[in-house]
Write a protein that binds this DNA or RNA. Structure first.
Length: 468
RNA sequence: GCGCCUCUAGCUCAACGGCAGAGCAAUGGACUCUUAAUCCACAGGUUUCGGGUUCGAAUCCCGAGGGGCGCACCA
């Protein structure tokens, strides 16, 4: 089929609906416009035809009269989903529907596949995820969710730029997978003859830029973790990490809650969110509670990182948590918190003062050497953000890495490796610095009211289809 | 990785051991104000795939594949 190389459209459906809202039933505007989009519905009635045109902004009716429209016969034979360009006068039909009265029109591209049931759309998950291009037309909620995600990204960038952050990019191909506790994807560079790991976090690179003198940096990009897929996990996901020189973790908590509030306001116009039928507020002033305090409340007795390990193990066993021999009291306390409190945190809250044992990159707490100046933000029962006063003493960092290496030797395949280059970077001097990581997909889920992470990822990771 | 559920026409779904169906889409036709238009006609299937049980299998059993949910891992 011969189709044009371009179409000089000059109007959008939503703008027309607004601009010509004043037209009364049966009134003609005298204004001619050129619109373009897909024909989503088509109703022919003898020498009349009505089509619903959808473009990126919304919908407007096409009203074709056999006496007026170019090639009326062909118009009535359009397929649902065909792209068309239409020129015509803006009118309101007798029945009150704003329409473009079709004059000249042409097919811009055919739809040879249909877009599913015109009422029920496409509900098959496999089809929706493998062919998002069809899902976007068949299910308007999909378009809303992905648009919201984009608006979240835009809002974050704008807010950070406004606060003098510099956006940077750091390597995704890493010789050592580090900056988080996770199993990596492995790949290979032919010319270098070297094994590389897809990054699991950009953390160490970003802090090296702070050593280099950039006081406020952020990176928002993909990280890769070779772990399970679930409604809240995709193997590749988007992480925001930012670092601010001269700040500590208290300052960073304030930035975190302010950023979330701004994003909610920018995208939804309110900080009051309904997620899966239940309300919560992104207004600032989130409670800040220590992990030990929350765990103590949950188990009904005082526990902390100073509680004898045997006592913590007992409490974990009572809750059917399998305790690994390598876990010290810090890890045990953290597991106890996760088993008892985490899932019940619906309203945004900062959980603070994580054990040093589970925080190899965080700076020791100024009041307790067994703890760190770390926080995690939780909302709707899941972790949203993680941050801390950054460990900047190279000798201490070396010792922490060595602890991690011992864990790895004991069989922990998510323990960090020693990164000598990073230690050397710290030897050039990292000023007091606070860092933050936010799982952007998780945030987008809250903003888009999505139950599944795949609803806010255009093309989620799926099993490749094997040829038979 | 483990467990439970699921897969029927292009899409959304029936049939649940006895002739594989409907709506929408598609195809042909009627209709000068429709709104998921309506009406008439026509067509559409190796019931995901491979085995098995049975006189008879979409349906029961075993295996494979895709998907969903839960657990584990994690953000």
């Amino acid at each position: 089929m011969n189709t044009p190389y371009s179409f000089d459209h000059d109007a959008y459906a939503a703008a027309l609906q607004e601009r010509f809202a004043y037209l009364t039933d049966g009134e003609e505007s005298g204004v001619t416009v050129k619109v373009a989009g897909r024909v989503m519905l088509l109703r022919t009635q003898g020498k009349l035809a009505f089509g619903t045109l959808r473009d990126s902004s919304g919908e407007i009716q096409l009203f074709a009269l056999s006496a007026v429209a170019h090639d009326f016969e062909a118009f009535t034979k359009l397929h649902l989903g065909d792209w068309v360009g239409v020129e015509g006068e803006v009118v309101r039909t007798k029945r009150g529907e704003l329409s473009v009265k079709v004059g000249f029109w042409q097919v811009l591209a055919e739809a040879r596949q249909n877009f599913g049931d015109k009422w029920a759309g496409i509900s098959d998950f496999d089809m929706r995820y493998r062919h998002r291009e069809a899902d976007l037309w068949a299910n308007p909620e999909t378009r809303t969710s992905l648009t919201r995600r984009s608006q979240v990204l835009q809002s974050i960038r704008r807010n950070l730029w406004d606060q003098d952050f510099m956006e940077v990019e750091t390597p995704m191909l890493n010789g050592i997978p580090t900056g988080a506790a996770a199993r990596p994807f492995v790949t290979h560079h032919n010319a270098l003859g070297a094994e590389f790991f897809l990054r699991i976090a950009p953390e160490l690179w970003l802090k090296r830029l702070v050593v280099g003198g950039y006081e406020r940096v952020f990176e928002m990009g993909r990280v890769f973790r070779n772990e399970g897929i679930s409604p809240r996990h995709n193997p590749e996901f988007t992480m925001l990490e930012l670092y601010v020189a001269y700040w500590d973790f208290e300052d960073m908590m304030t930035l975190t809650e302010e950023l979330c509030a701004k994003v909610a306001l920018d995208v939804l116009g309110t900080t009051e969110i309904t997620y899966q039928g239940r309300e919560f507020s992104f207004a600032t002033g989130w409670p800040r509670r220590s992990m030990a305090e929350l765990a103590s409340e949950a188990v009904g007795q005082d526990v902390s990182v100073h509680t004898p390990r045997e006592r913590l193990v007992e409490l974990l066993n009572e809750r059917d948590v399998q305790v690994h021999a390598s876990w010290g009291p810090g890890r045990c306390l953290s597991e106890l918190f996760e088993a008892t409190s985490e899932a019940d945190i619906w309203n945004p809250m900062f959980v603070t003062e994580h054990p040093l044992e589970i925080s190899p990159l965080a700076r020791g707490h100024r009041r307790d050497p067994m703890l760190t100046e770390r926080f995690e933000a939780f909302a709707t029962g899941r972790e949203l953000a993680n941050g801390f006063s950054e460990l900047n003493d190279p000798d201490v960092q070396r010792a922490r890495f060595e602890d991690q290496a011992r864990l790895a030797a004991a069989g922990d395949d998510e323990a960090m490796q020693i990164d000598h280059d990073y230690i050397k970077a710290l030897e050039w001097g990292l000023p007091p610095t606070a860092g933050l990581g936010i799982g952007i997909d998780r945030l987008a889920m809250l903003i888009a009211d999505a139950a599944n992470i795949r609803e806010v990822i255009a093309f989620p990771t799926l099993k490749p289809i094997r040829e038979a």
